[in-house]
């Protein structure tokens, strides 16, 4: 009697042990394919010489958006992430390691990119990130690689045509951790923006009728209006949002390498080519 009662417990415990073992194995082998769950380099290692570390590791780890058309968008079918930011990351991998495929992309959002960079999970952020004085206290930025400005996305036929039509009662959507939230809340007194995890969620919420306006940088909004032509960008830009590539504070070597690459690309016409490929027009004159 005692024996038989002992069995279910020991059995459950054994099954659990096995599960731990099998799941551990599974977790390690498949973690890499998803781009999640693998440790890349030792986070929190010595600060100096990140370029040496990248070269030694044999790959560059860049944080890009996975949900932002034109900059970084993941195709569920092919699993490929594409966009202007992704191409910049490829060019950088080529410059640093000599091969544009020696690149690991990690998904970041406006909210997660800073901690991920500071924790050493990614070498740099190339993710529609505006250079601001506040952020300069946390990270180092490259030169401007893209000039955006904040604008508004509305459903076609909406009475809202520009920032002047936005009042404190307008239902405005945005993304957690983006500069655009503060900008518009400063422009429109008493406005409270509904903030989402990432751009895709905010756009889904807009299309679900949860708000009247989605606000962020014009380039991102143009991508959305391409995804769903029932929506349009209105009113031009009301802020300047210069994008920079961010690296961990103090990694001046990497900043210099990025700036050098930007200059090379601009001189060779490669930059204009990339810009036109994604934006459908030539880059604005400097």
């Amino acid at each position: 009697m005692k024996q038989r009662q002992g069995k279910p417990f020991t059995g459950i415990l054994l099954v659990c042990m096995l599960l731990v073992l099998s799941a551990c194995g599974g977790g390690n082998s498949s973690g890499g394919s998803g781009g999640e769950g693998t440790v890349t380099g030792g986070a929190g290692e010595a600060e100096s010489g990140i370029i040496a570390k990248i070269k030694e590791r044999g790959k560059l780890v860049a944080g890009v958006k996975y949900d932002t058309k034109l900059f970084g968008l993941k195709d569920p079918g092919t699993g490929v992430v594409e966009g202007f930011d992704v191409d910049m990351a490829k060019a950088l991998a080529k410059k640093l390691i000599g091969d544009e495929t020696k690149l690991e992309l990690k998904e970041v959002t406006s909210k997660t990119r800073m901690p991920m960079l500071n924790n050493g999970e990614i070498d740099l952020i190339i993710a529609t990130m505006t250079i601001t004085e506040d952020r300069k206290k946390e990270v180092d930025f490259s030169d401007v690689y893209f000039k955006a400005g904040q604008s508004l996305l509305v459903k076609k036929g909406s009475p809202i045509r520009s920032i002047d039509d936005v009042t404190a009662d307008t239902k405005v959507l945005g993304v957690k951790g983006a500069t655009s939230i503060k900008n518009i809340e400063e422009k429109v007194d008493g406005l409270r923006v509904q903030q989402y995890e990432n751009y895709q969620e905010a756009f889904t919420a807009l299309r679900a009728g949860q708000g009247e306006v989605l606000t962020t940088d014009n380039a991102i909004l143009f991508g959305m209006s391409q995804q769903d032509p029932n929506y349009e960008v209105v009113g031009g830009t009301f802020t300047d949002e210069p994008y920079g590539i961010a690296v961990k504070k103090g990694e001046t070597g990497l900043v210099e390498a990025v700036n050098e690459l930007l200059k090379e690309m601009k001189d060779s016409g490669e930059y204009a080519k990339q810009y036109e490929k994604w934006m459908g027009e030539a880059p604005p004159a400097e």
Partner: peptide, 26 residues
């Protein structure tokens, strides 16, 4: 394409769940 993408996600869900079930039980 979408179905297999969802199945990939289910794989991760199950891996998370099984491992956490075993560890939290112990």
């Amino acid at each position: 394409d979408n179905l297999s993408f969802l199945m990939e996600g289910l794989g991760m869900t199950l891996r998370l769940a099984l491992l956490a079930i075993a560890l939290s039980f112990i």
